[in-house]
Design a protein around this nucleic acid. Structure first.
Length: 290
DNA sequence: CAAGCGTGGGT
DNA sequence: TACCCAAGCTT
């Protein structure tokens, strides 16, 4: 079968070396894959695995999750970070239950209309859960393409049009091979072609890689915007307050919240933000999960 | 479209 | 120690 030589090599490598991850098991199910994709948005694999298994044991179907208050999703989300994702996943479960009769949709457009599902997640679910042939481009794939195809040590800022075109040019024609390649490109970026210290000596495509061939030149393009300091930030204080709310079965009092951070302005701003985001609600004179 | 959003581990 | 990074999304 004719396919891009990069795809052939990466797929062959993947078949031998892929990690045994829960969502790759046969028959894992579309709901499980959707949940895994939500959890994997900006959270590392090793932290997701135990939480995912708990989640699916508790809520085996979208309807099971939709039947509970959103705060239970936030509590079960625990310390995965970005708890808005738990709220969005709960909302998506409601939408799947009400609009799609409890079945995770298979069309990219239907998936995109779910809360918290963007371009990456919609394609990932269509491909990995339902076997459709689409390009799936995540941060790992973008880095692999930047190096192997463009000879750049780091990818340019994301551009859906260009990223999808790049991946489409490599994507095998066969649905099954395309599905494997989508997973394999991510896997290669995750374990070999890493951001920090790529293991080029172990890379199955180093001899086809433009960046390697050119001597791994240092990246000179635009730097990613520097992330603001976390310690003492609004995000930090929001996280501390959320940890309190998750840990308590009863509403948390203002006095208790006052103890998580001494700066009144920052603490009030964080709490107001959580209320506005729907991650916290006022209840019985205190604050609780929704 | 740039900014904002948690948390923890690696270097 | 600081900083970087992790299967992104919404506003």
């Amino acid at each position: 079968m004719t396919q891009h030589p990069l795809a052939s090599r990466v797929n062959a490598w993947y078949r031998e070396n892929a990690r045994d991850l829960p969502w790759r098991r046969e028959g894992f199910g579309a709901w499980g894959i959707l949940v895994s994709e939500f959890m994997l948005q900006q959270t590392p694999v090793v932290r997701v695995i135990p939480r995912l298994e708990r989640w699916l044991k508790r809520w085996p179907t979208p309807g099971d999750l939709a039947a509970e208050p959103p705060g239970e999703a936030v509590r079960e989300w625990a310390n995965l970070g970005y708890p808005r994702r738990a709220l969005w996943l709960h909302r998506a479960a409601e939408q799947i239950t009400e609009i799609h009769a409890g079945t995770v949709p298979s069309e990219v457009d239907d998936l995109l209309s779910l809360t918290g599902v963007g371009d990456y997640t919609a394609r990932a679910v269509a491909v990995f859960a339902w076997g459709a042939r689409h390009p799936v481009v995540d941060t790992n794939t973008r880095r692999v393409i930047a190096r192997a195809v463009h000879g750049s040590g780091e990818p340019a800022p994301p551009s859906a049009t260009r990223d999808l075109a790049d991946m489409s040019a490599l994507l095998p024609y066969d649905d099954g091979e395309a599905r494997v390649f989508n997973a394999a490109a991510m896997e290669l970026g995750a374990v070999i072609c890493t951001a920090r210290a790529p293991r080029c000596a172990e890379c199955p495509i180093r001899l086809q890689c433009r960046w390697f061939a050119e001597g791994r030149p240092a990246y000179t393009g635009p730097r990613k915007p520097v992330q603001k300091r976390y310690e003492g930030s609004d995000r930090h204080v929001r996280g501390l307050i959320m940890a309190e709310l998750r840990a308590s079965d009863v509403p948390v009092t203002s006095a208790e919240i006052g103890r998580v951070w001494s700066d009144d302005d920052r603490r009030d701003r964080a709490l107001a933000g959580l209320l506005a985001d729907g991650l916290a609600v006022a209840r019985d004179g205190g604050y609780a999960l929704p």
